[in-house]
């Protein structure tokens, strides 16, 4: 483990790096929402991004699969490297990128269609598999999202009839159906009760054997429970990044210390 010389509180994890930003900055017109963020996410690990509201952590997450492209006036500087290739390069295939780097949102957002069609939506769009293949993909994805047993008898009912926790796992299944490499999660449990939250956290620990996960969370205890690495954002800057136990037991930066001890806000 080494830290970068100019940013002593930003750890560079050892081992395979799946996704990495270099001097990333984000502007909304003249407003600079993110400043010079260089951080590396290790493969098949969960990294949690924490910080007070408006600190830029969700904006940062959206830079990682170019979701900010959809916002008028948004402009990105610096690099985001997925397996070493800059995703902001002009020849990047953006739909393919978003398949490789999937996103789960704060509010479960199933499409107003059946459970089956929700999961089948992505595969149909990307490569139009046959019926038997599609059945298999749907089942496998729902199993991976720990939802299969609960919905196998209502695959052709509306997804909107599921509970909030089930809807969120359905959204995760929908992401998994297109075989991503990275899963970004933007406060995936903030609309869920403790039991549903617990199931998502368990699911994350299963998924991380195959996927690289980056999660934005307001819940510090969630970050401390599930993540291997954690980064603290404040006013558009990454203040500290390190192993989760270090961030929560003995943070190096005073501001991180204040935040994890509940001294902000």
């Amino acid at each position: 483990m080494t830290t970068q010389a100019d940013t002593p509180h930003i750890l560079r994890p050892a081992g395979e790096i799946k996704l990495e930003t270099r001097r990333l900055a984000l502007f909304y017109n003249e407003f600079r929402a993110l400043k010079d963020i260089s951080v590396a996410f290790p493969a098949r690990r969960i990294t949690a991004l924490i910080g007070p509201s408006g600190c830029g952590k969700s904006s940062f997450l959206r830079c990682l699969n170019r979701m900010n492209d959809l916002i008028d006036g948004a402009r990105v500087e610096g690099e985001v490297l997925l397996d070493g290739t800059d995703i902001y390069h002009s020849e990047i295939d953006i739909p393919l990128l978003r398949r490789r780097v999937g996103m789960v949102f704060q509010q479960p957002n199933p499409f107003p269609m059946t459970v089956y069609d929700n999961v089948a939506y992505g595969p149909r769009l990307h490569r139009a598999p046959g019926r038997a293949d599609l059945d298999e993909i749907v089942e496998r994805s729902l199993r991976s999202a720990a939802l299969w047993d609960e919905v196998k008898d209502k695959l052709h009912q509306s997804a909107l009839d599921l509970s909030g926790g089930q809807q969120q796992r359905l959204c995760i299944a929908r992401v998994l159906a297109v075989e991503p490499e990275v899963v970004l999660m933007d406060e995936p449990c903030s609309a869920l009760d403790p039991t549903a939250t617990f199931r998502i956290e368990e699911l994350m620990l299963e998924l991380v054997e195959r996927y690289t996960i980056v999660i934005v969370t307001h819940n510090m205890y969630q970050a401390s429970r599930v993540s291997h690495y954690a980064g603290f954002f404040l006013m558009g800057e990454l203040i500290e990044y390190g192993e989760t136990v270090q961030i929560f037991e003995s943070p190096k930066d005073r501001r991180t210390d204040d935040y994890v001890r509940g001294r902000f806000g």
Partner: peptide, 9 residues
């Protein structure tokens, strides 16, 4: 309180 950091220590 589920203390963190300095408080935990």
């Amino acid at each position: 309180q589920q203390p963190m950091s300095r408080d935990l220590r």
